[in-house]
Design a binder for these strands. Structure first.
Lengths: 246, 246
DNA sequence: TCTAAACCCTACCGTAACGTGAGGTGCAAG
DNA sequence: CTTGCACCTCACGTTACGGTAGGGTTTAGA
């Protein structure tokens, strides 16, 4: 290992950076060698090497070259602020990526359980997911996914079967004009309430979002999911659930 | 809302995409309008609109335009494979981002607790963190961070104080040639063991990594952290801990 | 001292998915 | 007939370099 000044290749070998990167840093004014030979070859002196090490450190933290330059040239906010801003950006990105992962997993699940899907059907399913997703905050979606994981595949299926059993019964009761406070309807209301609580984890905000979703997008969901409560059914069963409390 | 065919602006308004994006899709051959007016204005027909909706769906999943094109043109792997690959990429990225977040948080912590740092010192600290980090797998670092969070700030400080008390004592005992099986050293070994277990969460792999770290980078760490066990001290106290077991 | 290998230079294209003009044309309403 | 809006085609900018081309420089060995 020679003494400085070093030529660009030597510096590259000794620091693990690429020659091209060093050229780039020179181009953008982040690290210009303090010397050149008569022929124009770059010569990096000891201060340049120190600066390069600092650049390297900041790069390891994911700081952009632009910010790095501002920091090293003393024309930036405090390091602390740079770090905080960077953390904020990272958190934002990670939130978006988590959202994507959630969607993709749900889609993969769908591909696993349902029959083979054509591309158009797949795309329709995606649109459907988005329609549903927009009613919930990312945090709520997170909570719901955690619940799905902790509850397990099997329980999920039985819950779905329960819904498929209860919903037609409620519809029938309503259409027959049965009194919401009658014992049969109250029994349905009790089961309904349990299922809702199981799904929402007892979070009323989630329950509310679900209701809004069915109210606003009922027809579309009906078409997609097949068996779905209507606004009127919500009102009906809510009356019954109210009656349960007293 | 007119009937198709639509011009770009109308299509853009009705789909929420930007005109420029539609131009771009045309440029790269992802969505070329099936008609043009004599003057060259793009006219999108009904099949184009369907294709655009599919593009939109896939974009919502974060699929690249390139993959989208391959998928829609039927020249790609199965949707399932595309999803899986995409998930894998996302996980990789998120792992890297988590790593960055960990580093930045540690750095912010350092800035909070220690005295105000110059930029050079900050960079040295970063290099130091990297030196330490390389001894652990990302999973181990994760575990350690979780422990730090669950243990809490206060306990961390008392643990550090404990180390600062014990290490000199062990050094002194060793330099005085005290028998590792003597009662005083055994008492030290007991405390040492507890502290190690607290820090590692009982994971011997982590304990091992720590030992390797001090063995390999002892001098550098000594300089940075000030008060650090040597290889010999490890050997000495290990003998004593062995003696504890019997 | 000569030559060939190794090294260096500048300059340009490419990356992903558009945003943002610039400069020119098409078209319907007043 | 003109105004104004929508449309067109370039073409550059964004990040942090990688890769390559074409040509000069340095250096080690013969």
């Amino acid at each position: 290992m020679k003494e400085p000044p070093w030529k660009v290749g030597e510096l590259a070998r000794n620091t693990g950076m690429s020659v091209r990167a060093l050229h780039h840093y020179d181009e953008i004014g982040l690290l210009r060698p303090s010397l050149r030979t008569a022929a124009g070859h770059r010569l990096y002196g000891r201060p340049d090497i120190e600066r390069l090490q600092q650049i390297h450190s900041l790069r390891l933290m994911g700081i952009s070259l632009e910010e790095t330059k501002r920091l090293l040239d003393g024309a930036a906010a405090s390091p602390r602020q740079v770090i905080d801003m960077h953390l904020a950006r990272l958190h934002e990105q990670m939130a978006m990526q988590k959202q994507l992962v959630r969607r993709l997993k749900a889609l993969a699940d769908h591909l696993d359980t349902a029959k083979p899907l054509s591309l158009e059907e797949l795309c329709k399913t995606i649109e459907e997911m988005m329609r549903v997703e927009k009613y919930f905050t990312p945090e709520q979606l997170d909570v719901m996914e955690q619940r799905r994981i902790s509850v397990g595949e099997e329980r999920m299926r039985t819950v779905r079967d329960d819904w498929n059993e209860i919903i037609p019964k409620v519809r029938a009761a309503m259409e027959n004009g049965a009194d919401p406070t009658s014992p049969e309807v109250l029994a349905l209301a009790r089961r309904w309430k349990v299922l809702v609580e199981e799904f929402t984890g007892g979070d009323p905000a989630i329950a509310n979002a679900v209701k809004t979703m069915y109210n606003d997008d009922g027809p579309a969901l009906q078409e997609k999911l097949g068996n779905v409560p209507t606004k009127e059914m919500f009102a009906y069963i809510c009356k019954s659930i109210e009656a349960l409390k007293s």
